[in-house]
Design a protein around this nucleic acid. Structure first.
Length: 496
RNA sequence: GCCAAGGUGGCAGAGUCCGGCCUAACGCAGCGGCCUGCAGAGCCGCCCAUCGCCGGUUCAAAUCCGGCCCUUGGCUCCA
């Protein structure tokens, strides 16, 4: 079974074949470090994380690069609010992103390149474009000539004619659709004003603190699109396998990347373009500019990484997702159910009634089917929703099996446990089998057991009122008590 | 206006590339039962879908083709 992916370039779901059969070059368009990351960013990160994890599971050596746009007028607009200089502000949010990513249990990318550290590469790429006649300089700024690149518009499906009709050529540009590769001087104060938070004090000195760099065209700053081309080529190659980004970047950002990169090298820039659809709240996308966002930090705090990942992976990356109390609540239920099923399988394995000599074909077949379905789902354009369904189905099978049997097929149960850990844990990044076993926790566990034993004594004596009190008190502390045929058990709440 | 992606039960959301096992998945909500001192968890069963509208192709369409309506994203910083 081979992996298939939906490629924006062709509009089709096609077989994935990397240039080198053993490795994959993957670039993800990261965020501009001017605002705290929100759940929409987290959706992109988590899906890319799972994509990388699955490619690795398939045996590829994945070279994964995610950039930070740390040079941008939005960042300058935060000077005085979130830091003393453009680089201060950027550093502040880069730090925040890395913390959020760790909190979400994302595997680290190989490199997190920043624009500010790649200006020389950007300049040389711009020079290359001027030399080959694809770009022109006007008064210290450099623009890409869209009419010089035949395939312009092939990613987003737009034509140069359509774009030309959008407006008249303004100022220095030869064609309205031409875009800046290099901008002369510092940042226009008006641009800063556009991006300033309304409540923020106007920082007149902000423009002065915006960094500029020497170039063959005088002092200036790199344009927005050129950075990704330069960093992708620097850290990966002139042609990469997969370029991923948010749906909102298709045009103009990715379209321009394709044009300038391919014009410069004469080669394909990326073979597969994958776009993550946007996270919505009440029918509109979640975004910093709309102010309807929920920060990653606050969300992790409130729901924890596993509920969040379950929520974000409960829709395929190619579908839009809706954020609401209801949808996140559903994710909570799903994650709880998965976790309980997993714990039950683990407990049954450890049970004295689990035997290596007992064979139950039904359970074995169910585990095999879950594995097959999971793999097929992931290979079908990383369908995390279906993959999770396979695990949820396995949960039901395990629960029914344990309910119906008094002796257990150890081998089959072990295989089920491994499936949760390998697929749910290793691929989806959920915390199966990583329960905190620290000293404090195990002491607390012993204490809970003690209380439960006392409660059992009360129950045996028929003092249900007292037994219920103990249960309520434990619950108030975040310990959920459940009586089963094999005696009482407990679970810690998500936030403990 | 132009470009792109979508419209499936009370909610949410698979399935559409490769038409039939889709009499439509998984989960939530709702109903009944088992288990339980009670609760929770779990299990079993049930309820809710003429798959946006109209037409076409076909023995057969949520799935293919055409038209229309609506929604979202992009065309300006944005994952």
């Amino acid at each position: 079974m081979t992996l298939r992916v939906t490629n924006t370039l062709t509009g089709e779901t096609e077989p994935f074949e990397p240039r080198d059969p053993d490795s994959v070059l993957l670039y993800y368009c990261g965020l501009t470090t001017s605002d705290p990351p929100h759940l929409g960013h987290a959706r992109g990160w988590v899906h890319v994380d799972v994509i990388a994890r699955w490619l690795e599971w398939l045996g590829y050596d994945v070279r994964h690069v995610e950039n930070f746009t740390d040079v941008n007028e939005k960042i300058v607009a935060r000077v005085g609010e979130d830091g003393e200089s453009e680089s201060d502000v950027a550093r502040h949010y880069v730090q925040q992103v890395l913390e959020d990513m760790r909190a979400l249990n994302l595997d680290r990318a190989e490199v997190y390149p920043r624009v500010s550290e790649h200006v020389p590469e950007i300049i040389s790429l711009v020079e290359r474009l001027i030399e080959s006649g694809h770009a022109y300089e006007v008064a210290g700024s450099v623009y890409f000539d869209v009419t010089s690149f035949e395939g312009y518009g092939k990613l987003s499906g737009q034509s140069v004619e359509d774009l030309q009709s959008q407006g008249a050529a303004t100022g220095e540009k030869r064609n309205p659709a031409d875009f800046a590769l290099w901008k002369a001087g510092g940042v226009d104060p008006e641009d800063i004003a556009d991006h300033q938070h309304p409540e923020a004090a106007p920082a007149a000195e902000a423009c002065e603190t915006a960094q500029t760099w020497d170039s063959p065209w005088g002092d200036g700053r790199p344009g927005w699109h050129i950075e990704c081309s330069a960093m992708s080529m620097t850290h990966l190659d002139e042609t990469i396998d997969i370029h991923v980004g948010g749906q909102d970047l298709v045009f103009p950002h990715h379209e321009n990347e394709v044009a300038q990169s391919e014009a410069a090298t004469g080669q394909r820039f990326a073979d597969y373009w994958l776009h993550v659809r946007l996270l919505e709240t009440k029918g509109e996308k979640m975004s910093s500019s709309l102010g309807n966002f929920f920060t990653v930090n606050a969300a992790v705090e409130e729901f924890g990484p596993d509920v969040l990942r379950t929520f974000l992976l409960s829709t395929a990356y190619t579908s839009r997702a809706t954020y609401s109390e209801e949808t996140i609540g559903e994710a909570q239920e799903r994650w709880d159910r998965l976790q309980r099923g997993y714990e039950r399988a683990v407990d049954a394995c450890d049970d004295v009634d689990a035997y290596a000599t007992v064979t139950h074909d039904g359970l074995r077949a169910a585990v095999a089917e879950a594995r097959e379905t999971f793999e097929a789902a992931m290979n079908d354009d990383f369908n995390t929703r279906e993959a999770m369904t396979a695990l949820l189905d396995l949960t039901g099978e395990v629960n029914a099996y344990v309910d119906d049997h008094t002796e257990y097929d150890y081998v089959a149960l072990r295989r089920a446990v491994e499936t949760f850990e390998e697929f749910g844990g290793g691929v989806l990044g959920l915390a199966f089998g990583e329960s905190d076993e620290g000293g404090d926790v195990s002491l607390a566990g012993d204490l809970v057991d003690l209380v439960l034993q006392a409660r059992e004594d009360e129950r045996a004596a028929g003092n249900y009122e007292r037994a219920d009190e103990l249960r309520d008190e434990l619950e108030a502390l975040g310990v959920e008590v459940q009586d089963t045929d094999d005696g009482p058990t407990y679970r810690l709440g998500e936030n403990n």
